Simulated assay, not measured.
Amino acid sequence: MSQESRTMATPLVRGMGSFFKNCRCTRQNRCPHPYALRYRDASGRQREETGYSTQQDAMDRLTSVYHEKRHTPERQAAAQREIGRQRFGPYAASWLTRQRHYTPGSVRTVNQVLKSQILPVLDSRRVNTFTTTVVEDFIMSMEERSVGLAVQQNAFDTLKKILLDAHRRGGISADPFVGVISPEYIPRKIAIPTLDEIHALKEHGSDELRVVIDLMHGCGLRNGEAYAANLERLVANDVYRVTEQIDGRTRRPARLKHRKPGEFRECPLPPTVRESLLGYAQTVEIGANGYLLRGQRSPHWGHSTMQYQWWTARKKAGITRKLNPYSLRHFFASNCLSKGVPITDVAEWMGHSNINMTFKIYRHLMPASVGRAARLLNEGL
């Protein structure tokens, strides 16, 4: 930037940095343009920031940075510099190995997003060079490649988790997501099976498929959680405790999504689902661990078994709508919300990590709250 377009920087105590204005106003102490500042962060890299409305705001920020540098132990500062010098690709790989709460399926999903969307663009960039501009350029690159909004949001969310981890550990001095507008994916209208369609699928499906259908549409379980059907999980006549899932690819038990090892959640167990499980248990030989479902060549069900049996039952039932097994979870949510069950409870029973996701997908299924509230309030008046 030329000297003409910038006022002379005002230096402070040695090592604090300086502040200035990027304008040509003759009386810059009274003009409305914001102050900018320049300083060196803990890693020794020069930084510039802008957007401070007063000199005091700029000085407060420089003082905060200076205080942080002065009170950061040398060993910690060296570790932060080492993180900042890393390339994004290796740092992302090390970050993923530290996510011990991720299930194998979640690890595969993150790896796929990294390989297909993020690493081709950002693999070699040093961690300490990430700024809001870099993040916005990455979003624009996805838009230019006509990447779908759902994929854009997944890639953005993954990148944000990795970079905020680096920011928390001191590898990035400033939050690179301040002011960045994330891609907004609006889920398409979900397909909810009718009760007649569910009965038809159960009628034309195998005994094992009926158990899975009952657990998914009656209790809100995910596919893999239903594969792990177990009589030991009936902890009360009306409560089913979900403690694990069967990984659909490896066909091995795995911890729950969004849960740490050993954690569980409980969901309502309708009498019809309880009778279904107990009735099926009387027709099969239950193993030592209490699992009800077995594959022909493995001790557990998997996605391929589910897909084949679901497609066969749907064809025999004459269902032409594009319903998939996950549609059964949508039926559960719709059934709960239409009966006035609070959406917070629905989110907990379905195992969502964030109620915002539940609200975004199922908000339109909730009864009109304003009109309903007006009628209820009127009764108290």
Rank of each mutant, 00 (worst) to 15 (best):
Asn378Glu: 11
Pro367Val: 01
Thr344Phe: 14
Trp349Ala: 04
Arg375Ser: 15
Ala347Asp: 07
Ile355Arg: 13
Ala373Ser: 14
Val341Ala: 02
Ala373Met: 13
Pro342Leu: 11
Lys339Trp: 02
Asn354Thr: 05
Ser338Pro: 04
Leu337Asn: 01
Ile361Ala: 03
Val341Ser: 03
Ala347Ser: 15
Asn335Ala: 13
Thr344Tyr: 13
Met366Glu: 06
Gly371Glu: 04
Arg375Val: 11
Cys336Ala: 02
Tyr362Phe: 03
Val346Arg: 01
Ser334Met: 10
Val346Pro: 03
Asn378Ser: 15
Ile355Val: 15
Met350Leu: 15
Met366Arg: 08
Thr358Ala: 13
Glu379Gly: 04
Ile361Gln: 02
Arg375His: 09
Asn378Val: 07
Cys336Asn: 05
Val346Asn: 01
Phe359His: 10
Arg375Asn: 08
Asn378Pro: 08
Ser334Leu: 10
Gly371Asn: 10
Asn356Trp: 07
Phe359Ser: 12
Phe359Arg: 07
Ser338Trp: 10
Leu377Phe: 08
Thr358Pro: 00
Gly340Val: 04
Met357Gln: 14
Val341Lys: 02
Arg375Pro: 03
Tyr362Gln: 01
Thr344Val: 15
Leu365Ala: 05
Val370Asn: 12
Asn335Gly: 11
Pro367Cys: 08
Thr358Leu: 11
Ala368Lys: 13
Lys360His: 02
Leu365Glu: 02
Ala373His: 07
His364Tyr: 14
Tyr362Asn: 00
Phe359Lys: 06
Ala333Met: 03
His364Glu: 08
Ser334Gly: 04
Phe359Gln: 07
His352Tyr: 08
Asn354Glu: 15
Gly340Trp: 06
Gly351Ile: 07
Ser334Pro: 10
Lys339Val: 03
Leu377Tyr: 12
Ile355Tyr: 09
Leu365Cys: 05
Ser338Met: 10
Ala374Tyr: 13
Val346Ala: 00
Phe359Ile: 07
Val370Met: 13
Lys360Gly: 02
Pro342Phe: 07
Val341Cys: 04
Ser353Ala: 15
Met357Leu: 15
Leu337His: 03
Asn354Tyr: 07
Asn378Met: 09
Arg372Glu: 05
Val370Arg: 14
Ala347Glu: 06
Thr344Ala: 12
Gly351Arg: 00
Pro342Val: 11
Ala333Gly: 12
Ile361Glu: 02
Gly371Ala: 11
Leu337Trp: 00
Ala373Gly: 14
Asn356Pro: 01
Ser338Ala: 11
Asn335Arg: 04
Glu348Asn: 09
His364Cys: 11
Cys336Glu: 00
Gly371Cys: 08
Arg363Tyr: 01
Glu348Cys: 01
Ile343Thr: 03
Gly340Ser: 06
Val370Ile: 10
Arg372Asn: 12
Ala374Trp: 11
Trp349Leu: 05
Leu337Asp: 05
Val370Asp: 06
Ser334Gln: 04
Ser353Gly: 13
Glu348Lys: 08
Leu365Val: 05
Val341Tyr: 00
Arg375Phe: 04
Ser338Arg: 08
Cys336Ser: 00
Ala333Asn: 03
Cys336Gly: 05
Asp345Asn: 15
Ile361Asn: 00
Asp345Ala: 11
Trp349Thr: 06
Leu337Lys: 03
Ala374Cys: 08
Leu337Ile: 09
Met350Thr: 02
Val346Phe: 06
Ser334Thr: 14
Leu377Lys: 14
Leu377Thr: 06
Met366Lys: 03
Lys339Phe: 00
Asn335His: 05
Ala333Thr: 05
Ala368His: 09
Gly340Tyr: 10
Ala373Ile: 10
Val346Asp: 03
Thr344Gly: 15
Met350Asp: 02
Arg372Asp: 15
Glu379Tyr: 06
Gly371Trp: 01
Ile343Asp: 02
Met350Ile: 14
